[in-house]
Design a protein around this nucleic acid. Structure first.
Length: 952
RNA sequence: GCGAGGGUAGCCAAGUCAGGUCAAAGGCGGCAGACUCAAGAUCUGUUCUCGAAGGAGUCCCACGGUUCAAAUCCGUGCCCUCGCACCA
């Protein structure tokens, strides 16, 4: 057979993909076999797959193909996720002609003419699933495509499934109502998710504590702080002299705060009634009573008091706040230089920071320390102040301890003190809460966003301790790859809080009992693995049918009857019954493979939801998680210019090489590395496999020791291969199946001096092709076929590892030979001799017996008897060597060799080979031969399992 | 800070749970040789240091310990990656 030209790879791949398709090879239906169902979390349909998607989904394909070849009925389904905001947001951007979005579309290879069609979100849900399927097919995925579907109300059947799921969750009290803070656009009147923001992606609501201070006329100055635990360090208040504050009634109190703050508080359930205004400048110099300090503190001017942030009034803690410290220092300078006069100057002079928190490495006045280190002189150095604040905030929060002299919170860690003091103040009515975005968020409509407390928000109650308990139980019963993940999942379950599971906008399914809400994208995807089991029997389109709740109740839970479910859904009860049986055949899910980004959300949600709805025997059995792919060592990111789309890889390398490079990229939890150099050289390795196959044709010969070695090596490699495959360690498996097998073949060809035996080679290659089939199925089919095998290699059955014969002495013999050759090589290298003759002396008979005795019974009588055969000098030398070998821990290995075969006899059989390899004549003798030829007296160096050598 | 994982030769990475055949698999890169007019590709060898005899020295983040024996076990410290959410 000719070598596969690389351009032929594409046609070979296409050919086999077509045949698999025609023969419905991967369409899995329930039958009498053991089943194996593995899934990949469907990807979001706002882009095309890159090699990272390829890496994770291929892991499902590798294991599915392997399991199929181990006699399992393997199911690998696939679907497309369309729920949520990003598609809608991106479509809007296209409609608005936003440059960035248009160029993203162009980069995906979408032509000018077509781009505008993406202004309609629905077009995305048609286009991208098509492209994904195309790419996945081209990659040679063994997917049962009959079961594909899209999510959202665009698919009536799936929509009804989600609706059923939420009804069941609600019945079990797993969905509850509450309120929670969201980032909110006051102009549009909607929550603004990351995808709807012009800027401020990743910013979240943060909680400020509003602390009250009383002016002598009874007005309440309301200062906002992120750090209530610093209340005992208050020295003064800051107001912005250029701001007009408002006076607003709140119950019996009259608050002073910025008008922006009043507007925000209104969205957070605090109703204020404006009664008048107050110039910031007019409060400066007055005194306010601090309920914490139990004394009056001065109100001073500061430009950093931003009316748009918090309340525009700040309580000053110069010990711990760089802003406060710098502002205070500036005022003090002003007072000294005379630019500030009178009462204000006097007040300023009387202020000094109060030590309240001890932070390792920062002492008790961290603000001063950092400000001085960074050389900040003025409030206007905002960038430096930002980094100073961030540093102190983080260090102080995690490592700081309140100084012991403080009342109430003395000696407590900052973290705990904050909670304690805040709760006490709230209880006493001298504080309130307010939320602000953690950073500036600008809506796409260019409005600055605020935080709103949304009422009537529906939550999945992941914070519920009882539900957590169930989830922990599920984890305890699961397998994880890698195994340590159980700890990670247990931990996530513990910190997970209630999850807001509905949105106002985006694509999705309506909340069944409150149709104005859309179920959010992570929440409609926790149970759909079950849906796969029947998806191909339901019509997955907009004109499909919404199934009745009793239908799912029966199919998934066995509640009610097939007759009833059929009647309500208009489906033949016999069909309903079949679906019930099909679900029970495939479920529970055997394996879900995902990237590590889904641990903290989707995968854990899936565990939670399964425990809520299904009985124990239907909970998922295993999760596998892998890292993020890197390209030649650096993180894949579009902005950094190194990313690779799956289509690009396929065009460049073809499916098999893309698959092989992915498999070899890495395993376990570490980030895998896509190695272009490996990809470049991968094809030649596949050629080699094919070449070897073609050389395996022709007449066989009688099997000799080396043939047996080859087959034993294959058996031994195969045993390790199955272990690795079962553990999803695909890189190791490829190394064994491709590289180690090929290296064995190279040694074999060398040993046989070109006279390879087809009857050994053929089963060897046949096994290798089968082992490689999960990774490079196309070329393996080609070779399989060319070797005259019937059917498909990917439908053939791999042997039981235990069934394969391993000739252990045969393995030892070759290992021994290699080590003898290694010793000779080293001697030649070190001495620089060009050898003409090489003498090899194997150990004397008595030495072998002695070794056997010493490592075994150690019988002194036997020892004495054996020693009598040895001459004194030789025995002495032997024991020296013996001690050394023992020290190295090699004794048992030497004994194993020496007792497994006759060294001299074996070496003699390889003489021709050795002479050819070494280019010298080789003489093999035993150290105690009577007619020994030993010109340099080296034979005494012999040791059982390691012969003496003399080179000349 | 809490939680999870990690630190192995030029780079990547196996080995660590079950200590000794470990100067430590394999890949990539480098070097040398073969082939070639040449380059690329491919093949072979080699790739810690010293060595004219298979040896010795040093080595698996650092330091200390356990052991006849430590990359592997124990302790302490340093460093790195990821998660800590309402978003797919």
């Amino acid at each position: 057979m000719d070598l596969i030209e690389s351009k032929d790879m594409f046609s070979i791949e296409e050919k086999w993909q077509k045949r698999w398709e025609e023969d419905h090879l991967f369409e899995a239906n329930p039958d009498g076999r053991r089943k194996f169902m593995a899934t990949y979390p469907y990807s979001y349909m706002n882009g095309l797959p890159h090699i990272g998607h390829g890496f994770t989904s291929l892991r499902v394909d590798f294991i599915s193909r392997y399991k199929r070849m181990r006699g399992y009925n393997a199911l690998f389904p696939f679907a497309f996720h369309c729920t949520g905001l990003p598609i809608v947001a991106s479509a809007t951007r296209i409609r608005e002609g936003e440059e960035k979005q248009l160029s993203i579309m162009k980069d995906m290879g979408i032509g000018e003419a077509e781009i505008m069609r993406f202004a309609d979100p629905i077009y995305w849900t048609d286009y991208f699933p098509r492209r994904w399927e195309q790419t996945m097919r081209r990659l040679g995925m063994s997917i049962d495509w009959r079961r594909k579907f899209i999510t959202t109300s665009l698919n009536k059947s799936y929509d009804s499934f989600v609706s059923w799921q939420f009804n069941r969750l609600k019945d079990g009290d797993f969905v509850r109502k509450g309120s929670h803070p969201v980032i909110w656009c006051p102009k549009d009147g909607i929550p603004v998710g990351d995808h709807d923001r012009r800027s401020g992606e990743g910013e979240t609501p943060t909680e400020y504590t509003l602390i009250k201070f009383r002016l002598d006329d009874g007005l309440i100055l309301v200062a906002a702080t992120l750090r209530p635990e610093t209340a005992y360090g208050q020295t003064n208040l800051w107001v912005n002299p250029e701001t007009r504050y408002i006076i607003a009634g709140n119950g019996s109190e009259r608050w002073v705060l910025s008008s922006e703050a009043a507007m925000k508080l209104a969205e957070q359930g605090v109703q204020l009634h404006e009664e008048g205004t107050l110039e910031g400048g007019s409060i400066v110099g007055r005194k306010a009573y601090s309920f914490t300090m139990k004394t009056e503190i001065p109100v001073l001017p500061a430009l950093f008091a931003d009316p748009g942030k918090g309340t525009g009034i700040v309580s000053s803690v110069p010990s711990d706040s760089p802003d406060d410290y710098v502002a205070l220092m500036e005022l003090k300078r002003g007072a000294k230089e005379g630019s500030i006069k009178g009462a204000a100057a006097q007040a300023v002079e009387g202020i000094s920071p109060i030590e309240i928190i001890e932070t390792p490495g920062y002492g008790r006045l961290p603000a001063r320390k950092v400000v001085e280190r960074l050389g900040i002189r003025s409030q206007s150095e905002s960038a430096k102040l930002e980094s100073a604040k961030e540093e102190i905030y983080r260090e102080g929060f995690y490592k700081g301890v309140m100084v012991s002299s403080l009342p109430e919170i003395g000696g407590m860690p900052v973290e705990a003190a904050r909670v304690k003091i805040k709760e006490r103040m709230l209880k006493e009515g001298i504080a309130a809460l307010m939320y602000e975005p953690s950073g500036e968020v600008i809506c796409r409509c260019l409005t600055r966003c605020i935080v709103k407390i949304v009422d009537n928000q529906w939550f999945l109650a992941y914070g519920d301790p009882e539900w957590k308990k169930l989830a922990h139980e599920a984890v305890a019963g699961m397998n994880f790859y890698p195994a340590f993940l159980n700890r990670q999942f247990d931990n996530v379950i513990d910190w997970l809080k209630d999850w807001a599971c509905v949105h106002h906008t985006g694509l999705g399914s309506a909340l069944p009992w409150d149709q104005k809400w859309k179920i959010e994208s992570l929440s409609d995807s926790t149970l759909y693995m079950a849906y796969y089991t029947i998806a191909h029997r339901l019509k997955s389109t907009a004109d499909g049918m919404a199934q009745d709740i009793s239908f799912y109740d029966y199919v998934f839970l066995g509640r009610g009857s097939a007759k009833e479910a059929g009647r309500k859904s208009g489906i033949d009860p016999a069909k309903v019954e079949e679906m019930r049986r099909e679900f029970l055949y495939w479920y529970p899910l055997d394996l879900r493979v995902s990237g590590k980004d889904l641990i903290g959300n989707h995968l854990t949600f899936a565990i939670f939801n399964h425990t809520a709805i299904f009985s124990r025997e239907l909970w998922p059995k295993a999760f596998a998680v892998n890292g993020w792919i890197t390209i030649s060592g650096s993180k894949m990111s579009k902005s950094a210019g190194n990313s690779m789309m799956l289509d690009t890889a396929l065009e460049r390398y073809g499916a098999d090489v893309t698959r092989l490079t992915s498999a070899y990229a890495g395993e376990g939890f570490d980030d895998p590395n896509w190695d272009d150099d490996f990809a470049e050289s991968a094809l030649k390795r596949l050629y080699q496999m094919q070449e070897a196959a073609s050389s395996a044709s022709g007449e066989g010969m009688e099997e000799d020791d080396v043939d047996r070695w080859l087959l034993s090596t294959a058996a031994s490699i195969y045993g390790r291969y199955t272990d690795n495959m079962e553990q999803l360690l695909f890189k190791s498996a490829v190394k064994l199946a491709l590289i180690d097998m090929q290296n064995a073949l190279k040694w074999y060809a060398r040993r046989k001096r070109g006279k390879v035996n087809a009857s050994a080679l053929r089963p060897f290659i046949r096994l290798q092709v089968m082992m490689m089939a999960p990774f490079t199925p196309h070329i393996c089919e080609e070779i399989w076929h060319s070797m005259g095998n019937a059917g498909y290699v990917c439908a053939s059955e791999l042997p039981e590892p235990g069934e394969m014969q391993v000739d252990a002495p045969a393995l030892l013999r070759e290992e021994y030979l290699e080590s003898v050759m290694g010793d000779i090589d080293e001697i030649v290298k070190v001495t620089g001799i060009k050898p003409s003759s090489i003498y090899i002396y194997t150990a004397a008979e008595w030495q072998k017996q002695l070794l056997e005795n010493e490592t075994g019974s150690g019988d002194p009588a036997a020892r004495k008897r054996i020693m009598s055969a040895a001459k004194g000098k030789a025995a002495e030398r032997f024991f020296k060597k013996y001690a050394m070998e023992k020290g190295q821990g090699r004794l048992e290995f030497r004994r194993l060799i020496s007792s497994s075969f006759d060294e001299r006899e074996f070496l003699a059989s390889t003489r021709e080979f050795l002479e050819g390899e070494l280019g010298a004549s080789v003489v093999i003798q035993m150290a105690d031969d009577s007619d020994i030829e030993d010109p340099a007296g080296r034979s005494g160096n012999a040791f059982p399992g390691r012969p003496a050598i003399f080179v000349k």
